[in-house]
Amino acid sequence: MEFQTTRKLRDFDTWGEVRRAWEAGETGASLARRYDVGLDNLWRRRATESWVRRKGPDPKPEPIEGWDRYARAKMEAFELKRDETRQLAEVLAAAMQGGPLERVPLWHAGHVLTWRAEHLETEVAAADREYFRKHAWTDGFWDAAGRLEDLWVLDQVTLEANREAWREDAGLPPGVAEVWP
């Protein structure tokens, strides 16, 4: 009894499909089964023809809590930030229309003062200066002639005077990253 082996001959189009599929990330074993090509031949062609797989981005690992809980936490954080932003907008809008400054957050005081000085009457600017006299560090907001400094100066004065509050807001413990701010 004689055994005769038949050679599997595949055309260039078939091998082109195999190459494109392998370079896209499909496994050699699955391609050998699907196209009925020998796995050894596939590896040989891959080596001789210098097939290269395209490196795609690494998949994002699943969070420990699972995607649903992760998404819920992200939505809650988003809604909280959105609501805080809306409340801040209302406070700033009221202050910019001449309303009280008591609720204006510290870090926005310079912007509100600048806006009010540019858009409201001089009496409001004078009242603002009187209001801020309660903080000794706000003397740097006005020059010797009584004019309000530029916004960047106001922001710098506020940051320097309230350095520890900024560091606490940023979550920096004492003794680390001392050059900030």
Rank of each mutant, 00 (worst) to 15 (best):
A77Q: 07
A77S: 09
F78V: 05
E79K: 15
E79H: 11
E79N: 09
E79T: 10
L80N: 06
R82K: 14
R82W: 13
R82N: 06
D83M: 09
D83H: 09
D83L: 05
T85N: 10
T85V: 10
Q87M: 12
Q87E: 12
Q87P: 01
L88D: 05
L88A: 04
L88Y: 02
L88W: 03
L88K: 02
A89P: 06
E90K: 15
L92H: 02
A93S: 12
A93Q: 11
A93F: 11
A95G: 02
A95D: 00
M96T: 15
M96W: 12
M96H: 11
Q97R: 14
Q97L: 14
P100S: 15
P100D: 11
L101D: 08
L101M: 15
E102S: 09
V104R: 08
P105L: 05
P105C: 05
P105M: 03
L106A: 05
L106C: 05
L106W: 14
A109I: 14
H111A: 12
V112M: 01
L113K: 01
T114I: 01
W115Y: 12
W115F: 14
R116Y: 02
A117D: 10
A117N: 13
E118S: 13
E118Y: 09
H119A: 12
H119F: 11
H119K: 15
L120V: 00
L120I: 00
T122M: 08
V124Y: 00
V124F: 00
A126G: 01
D128N: 10
D128G: 03
D128I: 01
R129A: 09
R129T: 08
R129S: 04
E130I: 08
E130S: 13
E130R: 10
E130C: 07
Y131W: 15
Y131Q: 05
F132C: 09
F132M: 14
R133F: 03
R133N: 03
K134A: 11
K134E: 09
H135G: 03
W137E: 07
W137G: 06
W137C: 08
T138E: 07
T138I: 13
T138K: 14
A144G: 08
A145V: 07
A145G: 08
A145W: 03
G146D: 00
G146S: 01
R147L: 07
R147M: 13
R147G: 12
L148N: 04
L151I: 14
V153K: 10
V153D: 05
V153C: 10
D155G: 08
Q156T: 11
Q156Y: 12
V157P: 02
L159K: 09
E160T: 05
A161G: 04
A161T: 02
N162R: 11
N162V: 05
R163V: 09
E164G: 01
E164P: 02
W166V: 13
W166L: 15
R167Q: 03
E168F: 10
E168C: 07
D169Q: 12
A170R: 01
P173C: 06
P174A: 09
